[in-house]
Nucleic acid binder design. Structure first.
Lengths: 225, 225
DNA sequence: TGTTTATGAAAGTATTACTATCAATATTGT
DNA sequence: ACAATATTGATAGTAATACTTTCATAAACA
């Protein structure tokens, strides 16, 4: 399984990049180091200039892979959701009970890296921090509609639609499955963030068990009542 | 009531600004026009230079009121939450049933401008669009912790704590009131956004009734089961 | 061997995000 | 009425950001 997973290739929409960053050494370095720099500096303070400096390369070389840092962010975000979908399909393959599948999905959202801490290109722990801190900036822009048309959010929407399918399987009568899924996913991320930075807006204690428990109950209660 | 409301002064934490923008004509113009420009351009494309041009003033004059556009955003966000708290206190003053108070709160979150479309400085409809599109950028930064220490998010936290109080009144046993409130508030905003821009992540139809209904049921179900 | 392809090096532009200085004009205090 | 003070405008300047362009060089590939 480990071996299998270290060989899988997550596919990312080709319109996101100018040149496929997985196709070269430099491209992979750009992915790896941009991830860790965005994590350290935050998206606002991260620049291609700084990344070039760190990689001992030039701005122009980086621009050959990504048009700008927005696209680079979208790349990371897309990769994350493709990866989580993959994990979800794997983890729920042998499950019958849709409630159990939902619980598994919540578990994955809360602990996306359990068992897969070290992939070649991606440090999943860092990637999840970036998803939590920065991913909403990928769609909260004036260019959402264009970006959406280009399919930049399809990995995210695809993951959501899998959870929606579980809900429909479990409770076909529930009227707001898509809204509930989106609220749950973003709610989990927000709670992880608030727990650290605005603790009065969270009841979660040190670990992540509270968050997992809360959202599991929350989603199952909502569809079953 | 109209007259009363047009005289109320919403107080904003003094550390947010360099010079109180309500204290002068230019300051009020800065508030009014920055709001409409952020709405039109989005926070990323909005600059003090462009605002200065629109106001027939200079960048330096604007910098006398706000250190940077992040602080200006925080000002608008704080004002919004103070205003909503004020509305909430008013609207729930004569209510006994905490569930009804929660429903009222949801209603206000979904329709914050009903009855108060035109205030002098603030166009509440525009303000709410900015809250939906931009407010998470106020706290999703590397400077959250410092900003939080300065009290920049206290208006938001204060509003949340009012809803938490309602939940505790209604269901003292519910374990995650703060998390539920934060999830609900941000969920409402996100659904309003997704309804427009990523409709596959929402079940809401044209109006906002669906969103109101969904979150009302959602919060009451969650605490009562 | 010749030719794509990938990277590096250097330079340049427009915009952003400020800061500083000084003059002109209002406002206020006595 | 006059001096002191606050407010704004005008101008200029700096460092960083977000790119684009051109040209040289080295590696890969056919």
């Amino acid at each position: 399984m480990e071996a299998l997973l270290s060989n899988i290739q997550i596919q990312v929409n080709e319109k996101i990049f100018q040149k496929d960053p997985t196709s070269s050494d430099l491209g992979q370095k750009i992915l790896r180091e941009s991830l860790s720099m965005i994590d350290e500096l935050g998206l606002e303070n991260f620049t291609f200039k700084k990344l070039a400096l760190r990689l001992n390369t030039t701005e122009s070389s980086i621009y050959r892979y990504f048009e700008n840092k927005h696209k680079l962010l979208i790349y990371h975000v897309s990769w994350y959701w493709s990866w989580l979908s993959y994990r979800l399909v794997f983890a729920t393959a042998n499950m019958q009970d849709p409630s159990a599948k939902l619980e598994k999905a919540i578990h994955l959202l809360v602990h996306p890296c359990q068992g897969y801490e070290d992939l070649k290109t991606y440090d999943i722990k860092t990637l999840q921090r970036i998803i939590i801190h920065e991913s909403s900036k990928a769609y909260l822009t004036k260019e959402v509609d264009e970006d959406n048309k280009e399919g930049f959010f399809s990995a995210y929407k695809d993951f959501c639609s899998r959870l929606v399918a579980f809900i429909k399987e479990s409770q076909p009568a529930y009227k707001f499955p898509s809204s509930l899924v989106a609220t749950t996913i973003e709610g989990i991320h927000l709670q992880k963030y608030f727990k650290e930075h605005l603790p009065s807006l969270s009841d979660a204690k040190k670990g992540d068990q509270d968050i997992e428990l809360m959202f599991s109950k929350f989603i199952l209660n909502t569809i079953n009542h």
